[in-house]
């Protein structure tokens, strides 16, 4: 900073530490809760320090030995979550890279129409059109299937929009140089465009993965078969008992397990993620 004001520096650090503390508080309590037997959660009391049941709780929840209201173990739901998240991520990247490429680098009849059909979906989340989408998926016989979990969530233009922005900043002379070097549209796509956009692709990968992993309402609605349950939505089942009967230790283990993969991705790829988020949406 320009001038040295010790008390201001102190206020800054203090505020940030307080902020971090408040933000971390619920996770701390969840961690503590996950280390106690369910009998520790009675009326008027909740343990505030770690217990000795950690290993036991985490193991039994992970392997599905603890009663959870779902017939498949947590590791299996985790697998489902991974399949759904990766399916959504890869699918979105695939269709949006191709369509953004076509829209930016080609001129063809009905280009404008294609553009609008795609971009009309830009801000309309599945939650808004949930009932008719459900009916369409039911008509297509895709309830309780991975394609039913994945495909409808791919239908959004955010990634296409961002790739379009990214491609439009490519200098035109680069394309001309490639044409002179004998690269047709397909070579250009693989040799020049993809490698040049790899930071954006990676950043979007992170964002899309988190989006996919965290889906809640859509899986809740279209899966009735436990074999297709995802981790995040299974929480609903675990809480769907009388309030006094909730096994908080197991709920918290599940919650933490459902948080770990996306949080790890964000922290592990923080630089990329921050750049992708801030650059992309600005």
């Amino acid at each position: 900073m320009i001038e040295n004001r010790p008390w201001l520096t102190f206020v800054s650090h203090f505020s940030l530490l307080l902020g971090i503390g408040v933000v971390a508080l619920p996770v701390w309590v969840a961690l503590v809760a996950s280390t106690h037997p369910s009998s520790a959660f009675g009326a008027g009391e909740i343990p505030l320090w770690f217990g000795d049941q950690a290993l036991e709780n985490w193991r039994s929840v992970f392997l599905g030995e603890a009663s959870s209201g779902v017939d498949v173990p947590v590791w299996y739901m985790m697998l489902n979550s991974f399949i759904m998240a990766l399916g959504i991520t890869v699918g979105k990247l695939f269709i949006s890279l191709l369509s953004a490429y076509a829209i930016v680098f080609f001129r063809f009849p009905f280009r404008g129409a294609c553009f609008w059909v795609i971009f009309i979906t830009l801000m309309l989340p599945v939650e808004v059109r949930i009932v008719p989408t459900y009916e369409v998926v039911a008509n297509l016989d895709m309830l309780n299937s991975y394609s039913g979990l994945i495909l409808p969530l791919i239908a959004s233009a955010t990634a296409t929009f961002l790739f379009r922005q990214c491609f439009m900043t490519m200098p035109g002379e680069l394309i001309e140089a490639a044409r002179i070097d004998g690269a047709g549209p397909i070579r250009f796509f693989f040799d020049i465009l993809l490698p040049m956009s790899r930071t954006n692709i990676a950043a979007l990968f992170v964002i899309m993965f988190i989006y996919g992993w965290n889906q809640y309402l859509w899986p809740v609605i279209i899966t009735t078969d436990d074999a297709y349950y995802t981790l995040v939505m299974s929480i609903k089942r675990m809480l769907a008992v009388d309030q006094g009967d909730i096994e908080w230790n197991h709920v918290m283990v599940t919650t933490l397990l459902a948080m770990i993969p996306p949080v790890a991705v964000v922290i592990g790829m923080q630089k990329l993620f921050v750049k992708g988020l801030v650059d992309a949406e600005k």
Binding site: R111, I118, T121, R129, T133
Partner: peptide, 30 residues
């Protein structure tokens, strides 16, 4: 962009996947 590829059929092929997905899972429900 003022520079682009002079191709007739390829661009349709490229937008097709997204168009199909959008039509089935977005426009139809809407």
């Amino acid at each position: 962009m003022s520079v682009y590829f002079p191709h007739k059929k390829l661009p349709y092929l490229l937008v097709l996947p997204q168009l199909v997905i959008t039509l089935i899972f977005f426009l139809w429900p809407a």
